[in-house]
Design a protein around this nucleic acid. Structure first.
Lengths: 341, 341
DNA sequence: CTGTCGACCTAATGCGGATTAGGGAGATGT
DNA sequence: ACATCTCCCTAATCCGCATTAGGTCGACAG
């Protein structure tokens, strides 16, 4: 008994009095069918029509050797988090471009795996696809190392230089964007600008700080950087900064936004308002946060699309594409930054 | 040369010094591997581990008819729309439950190829997965009909009775929820309540209206329903309603929210405020809209999860599960509805 | 010492279609 | 009449895995 009740090429072949490969050539082939008699083609087409034939995509792909699946794996416990909607634009870009390239998206999910190395198993399944995208602030180095040892094409969304040239990525140019924010503030007249960052040593944090420092240098200002875990930002401390002549504060944007939130809370309790008492900017995307914040726009959708394009080129065997790409972020002036009083 | 660089069962077999079927039995088999010597199993497992073997889902499905992939197909030109974020909670629920059930998610994307029947191609690819979820307000009847003619298990998220029992779905109980909103308004003291809906004849629209009418009936009030395309809601008309004694307006929530927006715009121009001059509620989820709106909460995440559970049961061959399920929506009282002045 | 029974594994085959090498039949040339 | 050449189509295989029907070998009973 045939597992599927649907007609196969063999059925058509029988009905049309030809062989299965002939049917395959005529139905599937575009140019290959050129050498086949019109009459035969007609018979086969008719038979196919009559039986309501639809090629089985599974069999097609098994025979064709590729499955046209792009994997997507998100580190950092996927979607149900609060900041998750920030990933959404990436998804949109990935989706659009995946479709445009003729692939389907295979999403791998980490959450169910509660082993000690939660990513180990999934990183193995990932090889189901023809290639895989990765997304997430923190990169699990050992697992990724093993994956890179295989020949599976991979693209990371986010800058990660731990593996040098071996790990292709599409990143955002936080350094330039951070400097632009500083220039914006300096242009407004600020001279004492404070950068509040978290203790986290993710590469994006390092880049942001570098951008801040670079921008300050460029403007001939002295960079002051404060690290916080969020709990030590007291209203008193804010007032002290202000008394020392600080007119603008720049916060780091992270997935938890701990420092940023703590600062807002402290300011509120200190009775300080933005931008009246202090200007505020963030080295991140204001669209994730309450309106009006000054920052820069991370082109997430475009990054997603670019990642897909890079990945498909790698899958196609293109060895000449630049494996690292940093996309520029536009400055987003908001109302929280104004000239100092 | 082998098309795929990935290791196959044959490679494991060679490495472990056994035959390919033995590998298949050990790796794939649950009970079937019982009759195989421990020593052999160990060797095979080790070899598989060493090679980083992952079964090819395509081949698996071709041979066995299942690959642990759940498809997800979204009608209604997928994500980049404005209301798209409303789909996000569904995705979250789907993802969590998919992982919990041990599946991966295969997202099918309506190809940007704008043929005359954009869904025709994708609905064929859908058969890659063991089963498929569908999401979207408007169901393409002919394509779905053809899909239902195959034996692929399918679950629709959203109520659709066009195919009777043949199309399983997880829906939201708009009828009950609509009635609850009306009861809420009536409880506040409103007696003349107007329902503004769009011309759209989607089943969800029909249900909402039924809910409204049912609620009004229940409260002994006369239901008045107005249809609009959004352009004919003038400030004058609003004032006229108010002069006729209407104290509350209920709008229909749709993916475009045309009627709802038009009403808000007209009210603004008429200088009418909610709830001071008029109470306002929507037969939809206020979380999609500006804060404070009275409506009901559609349990999207739970619906997504329920859909996955239903689908996996169908895949497992369970013929006893209820194929249609309506989930209740909690009333969400907001500040736009208050007792009439 | 032979027959029987398990225990373990493999040969063979199928799933549905793509691809390639090659063969039969008719036409053409000499 | 025989070699050659085309034109069309088919036989054979493969893709990677699952499944079933044996087959082999040692142990143990008779």
């Amino acid at each position: 008994m045939r597992p599927s009740g649907r007609p196969r090429q063999a059925d058509i072949a029988r009905l049309a009095g030809v062989s299965q490969p002939t049917v395959s050539l005529i139905l599937g082939g575009t140019a290959a069918a050129l050498g086949i008699a019109e009459e035969t083609q007609r018979k086969v087409m008719e038979a196919a029509e009559r039986l309501g034939y639809m090629p089985d995509p599974i069999a097609t792909r098994l025979a064709a050797g590729q499955n046209n699946l792009l994997g997507l794996y998100t580190f950092t416990s996927t979607f149900p988090t609060e900041m998750s909607h920030a990933y959404y634009p990436f998804l949109v870009g990935i989706e659009e471009e995946t479709a445009a390239q003729g692939y389907d998206l295979l999403m791998f999910i980490a959450s169910s795996v509660t082993g000690e190395r939660p990513h180990a198993q999934v990183l193995n399944r990932v090889r189901l696809a023809d290639g895989c995208l990765f997304l997430g602030r923190h990169l699990p180095v050992p697992e990724m190392g093993r994956l890179l040892a295989t020949d599976l094409p991979v693209v990371y969304i986010g800058r990660h230089d731990e593996f040098g040239d071996r790990l292709p990525y599409i990143g955002a140019d936080y350094v330039s964007a951070g400097a632009a924010v500083v220039r914006h503030l300096a242009g407004l007249g600020h001279e004492r600008i404070l950068y509040v960052r978290e203790a986290d040593e993710a590469i994006t944090s390092i880049d942001r700080e570098a951008g801040f420092r670079g921008g300050m240098d460029e403007c001939g200002l002295a960079a002051v950087v404060v690290r916080t875990d969020g709990t030590d930002l007291t209203p008193d401390r804010l007032r002290a900064w202000r008394d020392q002549g600080v007119t603008a504060v720049v916060t780091e944007a992270t997935d938890t936004d701990a420092a940023h939130r703590a600062l807002l809370a402290a300011a509120e309790r200190a009775g300080l308002r933005f931008p009246d008492d202090l200007s505020l900017a963030t080295l991140g995307d204001p669209r994730d946060r309450p309106k009006g914040l000054t920052g820069f726009a991370v082109p997430r959708r475009e990054m997603g699309a670019a990642a897909v394009r890079l990945l498909t080129k790698l899958i196609a065997g293109d060895r000449t594409v630049p494996r690292h790409q940093l996309m520029t972020c536009e400055l987003e002036p908001g109302e929280t930054a104004a000239p100092p009083r």
